[in-house]
Amino acid sequence: MARDIGIDLGTANVLINVKGKGIVLNEPSVVAVDTQSGKVVAVGTEAYKMVGRTPGNIRSIRPLKDGVIADFDITEAMLEYFINKLNVKGFMSKPSILICAPTNITSIEQKAIIEAAEKSGGGKVYLEFEPKVAAVGAGLDIFQPQGNMIIDIGGGTSDVAVLSMGEIVTSRSLRLAGDKMDAAIVSYVKNKHKLLIGEHTAEQLKINIGAVYEADEKQTMQVRGRDIATGLPREVEVTATELQEALSDVMASIIAAAKEVLEMTPPELSADIIDRGVMLTGGGALLNGISQLFASELHVPVLTAEDPLDAVALGTGVLLDNIQHHKQY
């Protein structure tokens, strides 16, 4: 028998939840390709190690951009590699797949995601919106007639949504998230310190000392890069306060989207959100001070999910069970 799987097809990482086993795969959404032969050289963690470090004939590609498929063939190859690695196919049957997408995705982009999952070895493919799945994975009971608000800050998109009765009532999806934060850090270090750093280094800065509210000036990290003037390698010290400054524009846009969603929310559901608070999920939820920043701007309690990085993948497992349950009746 094939085992049903839930896939969090993220811009930065792919997480796969196998029914009955939980999350069994968490690898970067990167594929290394030999440009001369067109062959896939490495997928996932191995390919991620090659980013910015490959010779001219090998290219590290991130096939998803801003939460949607930018390169269909490479996405299909990546999914096929991961699904085969897990050995979830049955002798005569294919696994059902539940896969997630941002809320502002077009019908053509939806079709591309479903098609990629089918071609990579899936049987029946279900598509669900990311904030709904993340809310379920974070432990919210979205199937009751009460308002639940979620802010999911991933790698390519930030999704803000209010849910009730198992459906999205109002939502906004921004193509502004972890990747744009990394780009903002690269730009800031270039302008402030006259140093060119790679996206890997920017990501490490964000993970280690990234802060968005009342940053601790004593928190610092040494980074190495190329001096703009001399072209030679150089090391500088970056502080958490500088990172707060670097990330301020991206955070302001996400806060503006959250305020928009709250303005469009029916009054009864708004009252529920004051009681229940807002749930933060995704990698962005791990930034220092992020819950305090949202709480001060939105004037409602803000909580961070227990496993913010795994919330979407955990939610796919719960929703897959629901789908299977409904099939039996």
Results as ranks from 00 to 15, higher is better:
residue 268 E to W: 03
residue 127 L to K: 10
residue 311 A to T: 07
residue 302 V to G: 03
residue 245 E to R: 04
residue 247 L to E: 11
residue 11 T to A: 01
residue 102 P to A: 05
residue 12 A to C: 11
residue 37 S to F: 02
residue 112 A to K: 14
residue 206 K to G: 10
residue 31 V to A: 06
residue 203 E to D: 11
residue 303 L to E: 08
residue 198 G to Y: 01
residue 243 L to I: 15
residue 295 A to L: 04
residue 81 Y to D: 10
residue 1 M to G: 14
residue 109 E to V: 09
residue 127 L to G: 11
residue 11 T to F: 02
residue 3 R to I: 10
residue 287 L to W: 10
residue 10 G to Y: 01
residue 199 E to F: 09
residue 141 D to L: 10
residue 173 S to E: 02
residue 284 G to T: 02
residue 113 I to E: 09
residue 316 T to N: 03
residue 234 R to S: 15
residue 55 P to L: 04
residue 204 Q to I: 09
residue 2 A to I: 11
residue 247 L to K: 06
residue 86 L to K: 13
residue 212 V to F: 14
residue 13 N to R: 07
residue 152 D to T: 04
residue 171 S to T: 13
residue 302 V to C: 00
residue 268 E to F: 11
residue 88 V to T: 12
residue 263 E to D: 13
residue 226 R to P: 01
residue 155 G to A: 07
residue 94 K to G: 00
residue 164 S to F: 03
residue 195 L to G: 12
residue 34 D to N: 15
residue 134 A to D: 00
residue 199 E to N: 11
residue 224 R to C: 13
residue 305 A to K: 01
residue 281 T to F: 05
residue 173 S to M: 00
residue 104 N to V: 03
residue 57 N to I: 10
residue 275 D to R: 15
residue 173 S to R: 00
residue 322 N to R: 14
residue 129 F to C: 01
residue 109 E to R: 08
residue 108 I to H: 13
residue 155 G to T: 09
residue 29 S to H: 08
residue 167 E to K: 15
residue 216 D to E: 09
residue 147 G to M: 02
residue 169 V to T: 13
residue 323 I to R: 11
residue 120 S to H: 08
residue 128 E to N: 09
residue 255 I to A: 03
residue 223 V to W: 06
residue 198 G to W: 01
residue 150 I to V: 11
residue 111 K to C: 02
residue 96 S to N: 15
residue 21 K to G: 06
residue 238 V to M: 12
residue 195 L to S: 12
residue 108 I to T: 15
residue 314 L to C: 03
residue 201 T to I: 14
residue 231 G to S: 14
residue 146 Q to M: 12
residue 28 P to W: 03
residue 226 R to Y: 08
residue 14 V to A: 00
residue 237 E to D: 08
residue 37 S to Q: 05
residue 135 A to L: 06
residue 10 G to P: 12
residue 222 Q to H: 05
residue 103 T to Q: 02
residue 13 N to D: 12
residue 54 T to R: 08
residue 153 I to D: 12
residue 186 V to L: 13
residue 159 D to N: 14
residue 318 V to P: 07
residue 201 T to E: 15
residue 240 A to K: 05
residue 149 M to P: 08
residue 30 V to L: 07
residue 148 N to A: 06
residue 88 V to D: 11
residue 195 L to A: 09
residue 302 V to T: 04
residue 148 N to Y: 08
residue 172 R to H: 04
residue 177 A to C: 09
residue 252 A to I: 04
residue 173 S to C: 12
residue 101 A to T: 12
residue 283 G to F: 06
residue 118 E to Q: 11
residue 116 A to C: 09
residue 238 V to W: 10
residue 71 D to W: 00
residue 210 G to Y: 14
residue 321 D to Q: 14
residue 155 G to R: 03
residue 81 Y to Q: 10
residue 17 N to I: 02
residue 212 V to G: 04
residue 122 G to N: 01
residue 278 V to P: 13
residue 287 L to N: 11
residue 179 D to I: 07
residue 87 N to I: 00
residue 59 R to S: 10
residue 200 H to M: 03
residue 272 D to I: 08
residue 104 N to C: 02
residue 158 S to H: 05
residue 135 A to G: 06
residue 26 N to W: 03
residue 80 E to C: 06
